[in-house]
Design a protein around this nucleic acid. Structure first.
Lengths: 226, 226
DNA sequence: AAATCTTTATAAAATCTTTACACAACATTA
DNA sequence: TAATGTTGTGTAAAGATTTTATAAAGATTT
């Protein structure tokens, strides 16, 4: 079983050592960076489950680092700060920090917050982004779809259509409604678009496109996903 | 299992944080908006189960936001207000607010009101769309019908006819009336259509189509659904 | 140039309409 | 009464029409 990985970005060696001991004795795998630059490179090469970020780094303002990380990193970032400055904390939370801790901190509290943040990560993965229908696994935020754990290649429109279907499992969606959602108002009469795209989608996701199990046609009305 | 989603629209970060902690620790998924504009965009892109709306927003009067949301959003909106102003509350309720809370509020009370509002949402969903007659389960918006939890395949006209019957349980509907409702004015004499379609419907929904329990013929007059 | 989207054409499938006929209930007539 | 006709209903199936699926050619975007 793989250990959960945590990246520490802090310039003080004593703090890093303290965190390393606390975390490794709790079965986390620890990565360390001394500077902002080094931390961003490490995170990019090997995205950890959680980042502990010191807001008072020497080479770059911590808020800048946070923003930069948040532009692509969507798991938990816990801020470490020497000062109990509310303004700083609010700013960090607004910039996407998951939580914050003021130094000096108690190890028990640190660990509790880390557990909580990681739990939320994993719930987010399970709940928000991916929908599962038998052999199909649709990740709405990553915009990827797997069939039997095999990644499929869909075009943008195909994915939009599939996402609409998946969000309305079991419900009959009329041609007009689908066209309005995917192509916009004014396209409600272009039912042929729909036929073509349902065709390509079926070819990609159905075992037997002639006898579709997922995208069911409701003649005269629209389609239903199941 | 998906978490229930709640959108907070409030300009005060402390209040948002407080609400976030209270709600997330009670297994809700929280979305946040700092401004009215941002809140409306978020709600439109991803309609939540409930909205917590601060009536005292900086960029737009809360009452205006409420009206705008209510023009298309039909789930619960709970108003948050710093002032215990009866006039304001009455106005908000008139504009479609589900409930209100005055700051500072107790977390326990907030949670209780949220549970209550969400419960009402879900009852509304259940009541509006599906009709149940013994082993038959008819979902009017999804346009699906289940017999003993088994999905049946009906054509469009068959479903329309069944829906008309189901909406008029126990009542005798004349041939003319049914024909006018399903096929339109000018088809009132085509009683043979009706015989054919009642036949196919019975074949699909009745245990024994020769001795129908649901679609009863009233000779010389029409049919009755029970 | 490659990928994607939009149109067009046509074949196939599903659905609806119409016709034919059987059967039952009831009324009429020899 | 028995035979016959009338009317309303149900069922099957042929015919007509509508709707859908698919390929592939153009147009557009990346």
């Amino acid at each position: 079983m793989n250990k959960i990985e945590i990246l520490i970005i802090d310039d003080e060696p004593q703090i890093r050592k303290l965190l390393e001991i606390a975390l490794e004795s709790n079965e986390y795998k620890v990565w360390q960076a001394e500077t902002a630059k080094e931390g961003i490179v490490l995170a990019a090469n090997h995205p950890p489950e959680l980042i502990l970020l010191d807001i008072g780094l020497p080479d770059k303002n911590g808020h800048e680092v946070l923003k930069e990380l948040r532009s692509w990193y969507n798991k938990s970032i816990i801020i470490l700060s020497v000062i109990n400055n509310e303004e700083d904390i609010v700013k960090a939370l607004d910039n996407g920090a998951t939580d914050y801790l003021t130094k000096p901190f108690r190890t028990a509290e640190l660990l509790a917050r880390i557990r909580s943040a990681i739990r939320r990560n994993q719930q987010a993965i399970n709940n928000d982004t991916t929908l599962i229908f038998n052999e199909l696994q649709i990740d709405l935020t990553a915009r990827t779809i797997k069939k039997n754990n095999q990644l499929l290649k869909l075009t943008s429109t195909e994915f939009n259509l599939l996402a609409l279907f998946a969000n309305n499992e079991g419900r009959v969606l009329t041609h007009q409604h689908i066209l309005k959602e995917i192509w916009g108002v004014g396209f409600q009469t272009e039912t042929q678009y729909l036929r073509v795209f349902v065709g390509t989608l079926r070819k990609k996701i159905e075992d037997n496109p002639n006898q579709p199990k997922h995208i069911i046609t409701e003649s005269g009305i629209g389609y239903r996903f199941q």
